[in-house]
Amino acid sequence: MKVAIVHEWLESYAGSERVVEQLLELFPDADLFAVCDFLPEAERGFLGGRRPVTSFIQRLPRAQRWFRYYLGLMPIAVEQFDLSGYDLVLSSSHAVAKGVLTGPATLHVSYVHSPMRYAWDLQHQYLRQARLDRGVKGLLTRWLLARMRGWDHASAARPDVIAANSAWIAERIRKCWRRESTVVHPPVDIAGFPFVAEKGGDYVVASRMVPYKRIDLIAAAFRTMPGRRLVIAGDGPEMARVRDAAGGAPNIAFRGRVPQAELVALLHSARAFVFAAEEDFGIGMVEAQACGTPLIAYGRGGAADIVRDGETGVLFPDQTAESLAAAVARFESLAIAPEACRANAERFSRQAFRAGMLALVRAGCAARGMPAP
């Protein structure tokens, strides 16, 4: 079986690249395609020496710095990949990769991180945050996003099989594209977060300080709970706002950006890991569970897939400080076993991801009368 793997762009080794890494583990002889490749040499290890086939965007002026500004050209770019000689195409898509063109003899399985967020329900939030909600630039951006939305919907008919990274994304796929999908949770490095049963008394949050993560909400909630200590790890553009929300409360400690070893130590000792974002999935929550640490999380998005309410953590229904404070009180009335948290995390291992994707590929092959890998 001749296999191609298509990815959007290679810039850093992050969440979607970990999916590509596991697809390459499944199909080590696969050819790799990407709209552009500007991955630093120090982060290329997961590619196993491969140099992907790239599109014309790779050669456009200042592409390494500005490739995202070429978003409007990416549908054309991804459609230029010649995949006619492949039996199986696997795309890893959060923007355009699922729009590759394949023939009737080719099975196309697309792993969808999300429909194009900034073109659909998050458009208004994106425009506000980018300060493009008014003026000529804003008008041009809205026009571009309308065109991208139309292409995104039309090209969603191209994959034969769609995998969604959470039930939340499966619902977004149904809403935006009117397609059904199968949930295959993304791979998490469970082994990198060893289990520790003994816990301390601090609540912990570790995150980039960006608006949608709502770290300010967590700080505001713990400001009203002086008897409970919160440790905040991370940095970013929202740091000043988070500090304002904390109001100098002595029970809230800021650690800034911490190295991996210190992050793992924080998760090991935490009484609970607190998460207030509406996230597509939320790998950080699974990493905390792998350490045996319970979760207190906002109950929309990927958290609803991860947290077993009352067994491995607590979900709170409203994205407010009051709702979070009530969840903390409820959490403290429960006896959540660290062993249950670790067992829950195993559902999201790399092995589980590979097994889920291989099952989808084999089912797709069987439906088309193709030999299965």
Rank of each mutant, 00 (worst) to 15 (best):
M1P: 13
S16G: 12
E17G: 01
E21D: 15
A30L: 11
D37P: 01
F38I: 10
P40T: 14
R44P: 11
G45T: 10
G48L: 13
P52E: 13
P52G: 04
T54E: 05
I57T: 00
Q58H: 02
P61E: 10
Q64H: 09
F67L: 09
G72N: 04
L73E: 01
L73S: 05
Q80G: 01
D82I: 01
Y86M: 12
L90I: 15
A97T: 11
V100C: 12
P104G: 07
P104M: 06
A105S: 14
T106H: 12
L107P: 04
S110K: 09
Y111M: 09
H113Q: 15
S114D: 15
Y118M: 14
A119K: 05
W120S: 06
Q123K: 15
Q125S: 07
Y126S: 02
Y126F: 15
L127K: 05
A130T: 01
A130L: 05
R131K: 14
L132G: 02
G138Y: 09
L144C: 11
L145P: 08
G150S: 13
S155Q: 08
A170G: 06
A170S: 11
R172F: 04
W177H: 15
E180G: 09
T182L: 04
V183T: 09
V184A: 05
H185D: 04
H185A: 09
P187D: 11
V188E: 01
I190V: 11
A191I: 13
Y212Q: 09
Y212H: 06
I215L: 03
L217G: 01
L217Q: 02
L217I: 02
A221T: 05
A221W: 01
A221Q: 06
T224Q: 12
G227N: 08
G227D: 15
R229W: 08
I232F: 12
I232M: 09
G234P: 02
D235K: 08
A240H: 13
R241I: 08
V242T: 10
A245L: 07
A246V: 03
G247V: 11
G247M: 12
G248A: 07
A249M: 13
R257C: 03
E262K: 13
E262Y: 14
A265D: 15
S269H: 04
R271G: 02
F275S: 03
E278Y: 00
I283R: 11
M285H: 04
M285N: 01
E287P: 04
A288T: 03
G292A: 07
T293G: 08
P294Y: 06
R300G: 02
A303P: 00
D305F: 00
I306D: 01
P317L: 11
D318K: 13
A325W: 07
A325E: 03
A327I: 00
F331R: 06
A340V: 03
C341Q: 05
R342L: 07
A343L: 07
A343Q: 12
N344M: 04
S349Q: 07
R350S: 11
Q351K: 08
A355I: 00
M357W: 14
R362Q: 14
A363W: 01
A363C: 04
G364E: 12
